[in-house]
Design a protein around this nucleic acid. Structure first.
Lengths: 168, 168
DNA sequence: GCAATATACTAGGACATCCAAGGGTTTGGA
DNA sequence: TCCAAACCCTTGGATGTCCTAGTATATTGC
């Protein structure tokens, strides 16, 4: 990851696709590969910022979600659905966040099956501090032009809707 | 991941950002979060297609890269640089591909330090078959409009260049 | 020739994800 | 009312990726 490459490897892959008779899907292949690589770059930046807080991206997302929930609490299955992750991943994340004293489990008042995840004061403080750094170090310096941000939100929003993420 | 949500969770997060006084970075936050989620969806599709072939995305990428290299061989460090992954990840991928008989290691003719990864005939065949299915099942049905594909390639290409991926 | 550099492997650990299975709880139809 | 089906969470096991060393070997530069 040190030195920049002399050429764009994704543009090269696209040329290879076209040369091998797959010109009809070369462009979407390049777009999808670019999304994969961009995600990798962004994730590295985000995790670099979160590391000093002892958080990973998955755990930060859960913390941030709770900080916006009324009462700072949410059922596990709600969190799983909203974050679009497997229930066992939520269990794993809550285990670690609870170990760090950032959240706690409490029984649901009416439904004995579900458990609530609740933000502790420490969790709320840490979420706020981590968000502040994330805002200034990552989101505030995304490297995307303003118009391109709008384009991305529109294009990826359509994609996610078609993929069945939401029916909005 | 079953039922679509009634509302777009990323749009909701953007509203929450704006309500908490972070309106200036709410849009890039939404764009970046959308990239993360889109990558997740695409990766699931890709790995679903590759699973019957006994391949993961990382291993397929290496196989595809080799299939385009002259002689079907490439030094480990070249592959690491072109795929933008950690050298130990390449070692890991090669171990498994070699175990499956898809690639083999051979000494570099002039530089005794470097080892070449070489595609076997089986590896070349499998790469071709996997690519065919990937083209028809994923890239050919990406769900992106033609113009949006061009936008993505442009926007993400600029981003990757600025991030230091290449100096093209 | 000798010291720095480069390359690849090994070992160990952290992390996220998924799957299958199981126990407790609620719901709803017979 | 009662029992089967559905729901919720957890556990244990398995994959897969990435990272940080440390080691051995080979090359390059002084």
């Amino acid at each position: 990851m040190g030195t920049p490459l002399p050429r764009d490897p994704i543009a090269d892959a696209r040329l290879n696709w076209e040369r091998h008779g797959w010109a009809d899907v070369a462009a979407p292949m390049a777009a999808i590969t670019a999304i994969m690589r961009t995600q990798q770059i962004l994730l590295a930046r985000i995790e670099g910022v979160l590391k000093p807080f002892g958080l990973t991206f998955a755990r930060y997302e859960l913390l941030a979600l709770l900080s916006f929930a009324r009462g700072g609490a949410l059922p596990m299955n709600k969190a799983s659905a909203l974050l679009q992750v497997h229930p066992t991943s939520v269990t794993n994340a809550v285990d670690r966040l609870q170990g760090a004293g950032l959240v706690l489990r409490s029984p649901h008042p009416t439904d004995g099956r579900t458990t609530l995840i609740e933000l502790t004061p420490e969790g709320r403080t840490l979420a706020k501090r981590a968000t502040a750094v994330l805002n200034s170090e990552v989101f505030g310096q995304s490297g995307f032009a303003g118009q391109d941000v709008d384009q991305l939100i529109r294009i990826l929003g359509t994609f996610r809707r078609n993929a069945g993420d939401f029916s909005d």
